[in-house]
Simulated scan of single mutants.
Amino acid sequence: MTGERGMVVIVEDERTIAELERLYLTQAGFGVHVATNGAAGLADIRRLAPVAVIVDVGLPGLDGTELVRRLRAEGDWVPVVFVTAHDSEIDRVVGLELGADDYLTKPFSPRELVARVKGLVRRAAAPAAPTVRRAGRLELDERARRAAVGGAAVDLTATEFDLLAYLLAHPGQVFSREQLLSAVWGVADYSGSRTVDVHIAQLRAKLGEPDPIRTVRGVGYALQDGPA
Rank of each mutant, 00 (worst) to 15 (best):
V132L: 07
A73G: 04
D101T: 01
A35Y: 14
M7P: 00
T157A: 00
V154N: 04
A201P: 01
L42S: 08
G41F: 07
A201Y: 08
E97W: 00
A126R: 06
W185R: 02
R133C: 03
P227F: 14
G226N: 09
R123M: 13
R204L: 11
L156N: 13
D76P: 05
E66V: 12
G38L: 08
G136Q: 11
P60A: 09
P212N: 00
T159I: 07
V32W: 13
G226E: 09
P171R: 04
L67C: 13
Q202E: 06
P171F: 11
A183R: 08
R69C: 09
T159V: 03
A148C: 05
S88V: 12
L62Y: 10
R5K: 15
E74G: 12
D162S: 13
E178R: 07
V93W: 00
L20D: 07
A39D: 14
R194S: 10
P107R: 00
H170F: 01
R47F: 05
R146I: 01
P107D: 07
T84C: 09
R111L: 04
V196G: 01
L104N: 08
E139Y: 05
V93L: 07
G218V: 05
A135N: 15
P60H: 03
I200F: 13
Y221T: 06
R72I: 11
L59P: 04
A129I: 10
L48W: 06
T195S: 10
E142M: 12
V9I: 06
V32M: 13
V174E: 07
E142S: 04
G41P: 05
T2F: 08
T26N: 12
A43D: 14
R22Y: 12
R177E: 03
P50Y: 13
V94W: 00
E12G: 10
L168H: 06
V81C: 08
V121Y: 10
A115E: 10
A49Q: 15
R217Q: 14
R177D: 09
L163W: 06
E139Q: 10
V68E: 11
A28W: 07
Q202T: 02
A128V: 12
E21Q: 15
S88F: 10
T105F: 14
R69D: 10
V132F: 01
A201F: 12
R194Y: 09
R204A: 01
A144E: 11
D101M: 13
G150H: 06
V94N: 09
T84S: 14
P50N: 08
A158G: 02
D91I: 14
L140W: 06
A153D: 10
R116G: 01
L181S: 02
A135S: 15
L203S: 02
T84W: 05
P130G: 05
E4K: 07
L138S: 03
E142A: 09
V149L: 04
A169S: 15
G95K: 03
S176D: 03
L181V: 01
V78H: 03
D162M: 00
A124D: 09
R133P: 01
L156R: 12
V196N: 06
A49H: 15
V198E: 10
R47V: 04
